[in-house]
Computed example of a mutant assay.
Amino acid sequence: MAEDKPRPEGIVSDVHKRIKAAFEAFDYESNNTVDVREISTIIYALGCFPTQEDLHAFIAKVEEDHTGYIHLDKFLPAMTKVLLEHKFPPIPEDVLLQAFEVLDKEKKGYLEPEELTKYMTQEGEPFTQEEMDEMLTALADPEKNLIYYKDFICQLTIDPDL
């Protein structure tokens, strides 16, 4: 029978490095604090994709007394637990591809930014316009201003063993 073994220190150390690097990218004042509005982006960058409900519960756990800021000291242990327990897993690549293919009714292999914005801001757990702007900047082909979804699906999924 397999026993629950303690995790090797190297794994925890690597997880801490990943979390700190993602957090520090948004710590604009280098004071180990980020704006609460950046947390979803940090969590997504770490390969975790919580529901809005899970995200709000996570933020409530780590936010500094409703100040709108989150300190690394609270974020690091909470996010380490999320990563080590594989909470908020990414959607599998094939499922994501199927979803884009459903949206691409004409089977063109791409979506126009307006189409994607409509779907992402009006359906399911809607994105804010700011989130959409960030995503379109990252995903749209700069020359043709089209979103070739097959080219970036691998960016939206992350190997959970990393």
Rank of each mutant, 00 (worst) to 15 (best):
E101P: 13
L84W: 07
R7I: 07
E134A: 14
E123C: 14
I43M: 04
V62F: 01
P89Y: 10
K108H: 13
L84K: 08
A22C: 14
E38C: 08
Y119C: 13
Y149N: 06
K81M: 01
P92M: 09
T51L: 02
I59H: 02
L96K: 10
Y69F: 10
L162P: 01
T51K: 07
A99W: 05
P160A: 05
K74C: 02
D65N: 14
H56V: 06
P113W: 09
L146D: 10
P90I: 01
P160L: 14
V102W: 09
Y119K: 05
D104P: 12
A21L: 10
A78Q: 04
S40Y: 04
D54A: 03
T117F: 07
T41M: 08
S13M: 11
F49W: 02
E130N: 12
N31E: 02
M1L: 15
G124S: 10
D161G: 08
K61S: 04
G10I: 13
V82A: 05
K150L: 11
F127E: 10
E130H: 12
E53A: 12
N31W: 03
L146S: 04
E3T: 13
M79A: 08
C48T: 00
Y148M: 05
H86R: 13
P77E: 08
Q129T: 11
K144E: 14
L136C: 05
A140I: 00
L83H: 03
Y119F: 15
P77R: 03
K5G: 11
A99M: 15
E101I: 13
E63F: 00
P77M: 01
E143Q: 07
Y110C: 12
P160T: 00
A22H: 12
F23M: 12
K5Q: 15
S30L: 15
L72G: 10
I39Q: 00
L111V: 14
E38K: 11
R18I: 01
M1W: 12
A99E: 13
L111N: 11
A99I: 11
V36Y: 04
E125L: 08
I19W: 08
K81T: 02
